[in-house]
Write a protein that binds this DNA or RNA. Sequence first.
DNA 1: ACAGAATGCAAACAAATGTTCCATGTTTTC
DNA 2: GAAAACATGGAACATTTGTTTGCATTCTGT
Lengths: 202, 202
Amino acid sequence: MIKHDKLMEVFEYIRRYNDDNGFPPSVRDICAALNIKSTATAYDYINRLRDQGYLDKSSKKNRSVVVRGSSVVRAPLLGVVNAGQPILAVENNEGYYSLPEAEFKGDDLFLLRVHGESMIDAGIYDGDKIIVKRQENAENGEIVIAMFDDGTMDGATVKRFYKRDGKIVLHPENSTMEDIIPENQESVRILGKVIGLMRSFR
Amino acid sequence: MIKHDKLMEVFEYIRRYNDDNGFPPSVRDICAALNIKSTATAYDYINRLRDQGYLDKSSKKNRSVVVRGSSVVRAPLLGVVNAGQPILAVENNEGYYSLPEAEFKGDDLFLLRVHGESMIDAGIYDGDKIIVKRQENAENGEIVIAMFDDGTMDGATVKRFYKRDGKIVLHPENSTMEDIIPENQESVRILGKVIGLMRSFR
DNA sequence: ACAGAATGCAAACAAATGTTCCATGTTTTC
DNA sequence: GAAAACATGGAACATTTGTTTGCATTCTGT
């Protein structure tokens, strides 16, 4: 696989520098750290790494080497789902999270903290942070964030989405709970589709 | 809360630039994007944002403004747990993931893809990626990655760790499975403690 | 041993970029 | 309304940084 020669040392350093500092190293940073005597040498390493597909690099721009495939998407944590009306107001923004793009692709993502047990049989637990892709429609069987315009429920909920006999059915993945078939079907609004989750143990 | 004036526009731009490009903007990038006529103005904005705690910035270094609190930790995906011997060999590295530091703190993290249902009652499902903090000891009740030196089992497993009557007990969170109490207790090696997980739905 | 490629170095150059100083207009304060 | 504080701009300056060029050294295959 990858030979661990000087070229890879440079690569590792660039990666580590970026992790530690939040921005890429300059050519001279690399020289200093790896005991390279000439900027031309380090410059050459960078170009070779780019040619081999390890790096991306904008010409002439300072400190613009980025490790390829390490991209992240950022998503705001908008609040707690199933308590209040957390989603629409940007004011409820509780901070941004960087997620690995390899895992969670998508343009318009946001996070919600899950409250309650209504999806426990789908492996979504109380306290989990779910990753939601903002969209207004859903396919049968997808897990969605749904909201009711007419105020019959308190804010948004996570449920599995079905369309049965032309009617929207919101199915909680919890054997102790009943399906919700909203009387006023037009009032149901899909805010997004759940594409993943994160959990951290205490 | 945060007033959405020009200062915040600059802040948002820096954040977005970084998300899009992987490295921070220069003062002149900010000028061009937000129609600011003088670099001194943008420079001033940056310094004010730093003073108010929104940014970090290394003096004199080019493109070194970073949004505070947006830090990530990087962890390699080392393989599949519970199938083979994936962990020790660096060759099994399947790529690095950037995780939000706010969620997964720690020095020495790595990821494993979970195979099997042995922890399903703890909400860890087949296919999940678990985040593991490398350490050799564990406290009662923690979920760990355990390995057997003597080859009695095939590689590493995820289990809940207990010490009962001085003996290590590895408890699968699955009612259909039995606790494992290794005969040769010395052969048990803890590789790390599970601190979180990620899941993406298909 | 030899040519040629690859590697590394030193030095210089050019461009990108951070930083400073001062002037001008705008808002706030008393 | 005057003074002070603030916001913005123009221009220059200083530093950092990417890039090029030419030369020495080492490696490689014949």
